[in-house]
């Protein structure tokens, strides 16, 4: 409402003068997520041109994403350049842990934000300038909800679920399992100490996403690591050569 004369909507002050112009309606029908998707497409085109395999790792906090990455980078070796974008609300701890392996890492602090978006990732890729033909691991903010809805331009989402989190998590957070192509069931070394039914956990993930690949793994002992490395190799091989671009 106008504070000067008390008139209602559709009446505005422009340059201090009082205009009573007609309000009109504009039909937009505009998808709000399209904004993020546009940035994601641009990232995807860049990854394609650079022959980079981009993987978006999603999980709840503490499932072992950073630990897995540290071990994975060591296992991949120096033939394939690895780069990491770390997303956390606060601190650069995880990027420091990655850099200790020798791999370049950029930390994005999202503050109150609960997920990475494609625009932030685009800027992080500017900073990283990944070497062609390598792997870009994107460790998303620990959160099984929001990151599912934000395409970053990655080739695959990889959901990490640790065995201590309970069999029902795929059913409680279905969007994440629906969006992921691979589930890494981490901390398998703890299975002897737990009552969890890991087959039920996997069955629940497949109930949501019948096509999801599943690998039981332990970042601590290295069990399951060969299967994960083989999956990465296959994903790299499946990338179209940059010269075969559309």
């Amino acid at each position: 409402m106008c504070g000067t004369c008390g008139c209602g909507e559709g009446q505005v002050h422009i340059d201090g003068k009082h205009h009573h112009s007609e309000a009109r309606e504009i039909a937009l029908e505009r998808n709000i997520m399209a904004k993020n998707n546009g940035y994601a497409d641009a990232n995807r085109a860049r990854f394609h041109a650079n022959h980079t395999l981009a993987l978006n790792l999603v999980s709840s906090p503490g499932s072992g994403k950073t630990e897995l990455l540290v071990k994975t980078i060591a296992a991949v070796g120096t033939d394939t350049p690895c780069h990491v974008i770390e997303g956390d609300q606060q601190t650069s701890n995880d990027a420091d842990r990655i850099r200790a392996t020798g791999a370049p890492a950029v930390q994005i602090n999202t503050g109150k934000g609960c997920h990475l978006d494609a625009h932030m990732v685009g800027h992080a890729v500017d900073d990283l300038a990944p070497e062609p033909g390598g792997i870009l691991f994107i460790e998303n903010v620990g959160n099984l909800v929001c990151p599912a809805g934000f395409d970053l331009g990655e080739a695959h989402k990889v959901v990490v679920l640790s065995v201590t989190e309970g069999e029902d998590k795929p059913l409680k957070y279905p969007d994440m399992f629906a969006a992921a192509d691979l589930a890494l069931i981490n901390k398998a070394d703890l299975l002897p100490y737990l009552d969890i039914d890991v087959d039920l956990m996997i069955a629940n993930a497949r109930r949501i996403n019948p096509n999801i690949n599943v690998i039981q793994i332990s970042a601590k002992t290295g069990a399951g690591m060969p299967a994960w490395l083989a999956w990465i190799k296959a994903a790299q091989a499946a990338l179209l050569p940059a010269s075969a671009a559309e």
Binding site: E9, G10, Q11, V12, S21, E22, A23, R24, E25, I26, A27, L28, E29, R30, N31, I32, M33, I208
Partner: peptide, 19 residues
């Protein structure tokens, strides 16, 4: 299952009233 979603996942600006 699963079924194909045909309505209910939209998030958009439908229209604006402007001056």
């Amino acid at each position: 299952g699963p079924m194909e979603i045909i309505q209910g996942d939209a998030f958009k600006i439908s229209k604006l009233e402007v001056v």
